[in-house]
């Protein structure tokens, strides 16, 4: 067993396969566990602010059909279309990294398989993101 394995979540994530320089007193800092935690925070904050804007733009359906259609029209703009690709990429990462966190926390074997779980998040992300990008960009740029 790994030292410090009484801790849950990402604390044990990121054991190097080859000897690397590990900052003193941690098995965590500088490895995948830390970076996935950083990415989870950044995507979470980004999604949160989009959500605030998205509720406000949807609220325009109470103002008038014209007001709603005009504002929702900006979402069809190519530049905004590319930002939507980023948004969906962030949502997909946040969703499946979140499931990985749940498995590491609640599934007895989760911590042992943490590296495989992280690879699974990457695979699922690519499998869902690539078809989305193709379809969405064909809508945005297809006229």
């Amino acid at each position: 067993m790994v030292p410090g394995s009484g801790l849950s979540s990402d604390r044990r994530i990121g054991l190097p396969s080859k000897p690397r320089i590990i900052p003193p007193g941690t098995l965590y800092r500088g490895h995948e566990g830390m970076w996935s935690w950083v990415a989870h925070r950044i995507t979470g904050v980004g999604i949160f602010f989009f959500l605030l804007v998205h509720v406000l733009d949807t609220a325009l359906v109470r103002v008038s059909p014209e007001a709603y259609n005009e504002v929702i029209g900006t979402y069809k703009n190519p530049v905004v279309g590319l930002m939507e690709v980023g948004l969906v990429g962030a949502i997909l990462f946040h969703a499946f990294n979140g499931i990985r966190l749940i498995l590491v926390d609640f599934w007895a074997k989760g911590p042992r398989h943490q590296r495989k779980l992280m690879i699974a998040v990457g695979i699922i992300w690519v499998v869902l993101f690539v078809p989305f990008v193709i379809r969405h960009l064909s809508h945005v740029f297809g006229g």
Binding site: P65, I72, Y75, E84, F132, R135, H136, H139, V140
Partner: peptide, 13 residues
């Protein structure tokens, strides 16, 4: 975003 016309189909209707 995936079904039908995706983003291009979004409007009041």
């Amino acid at each position: 975003l995936m079904l039908g016309g995706g983003i291009t189909a979004l409007d009041f209707g």
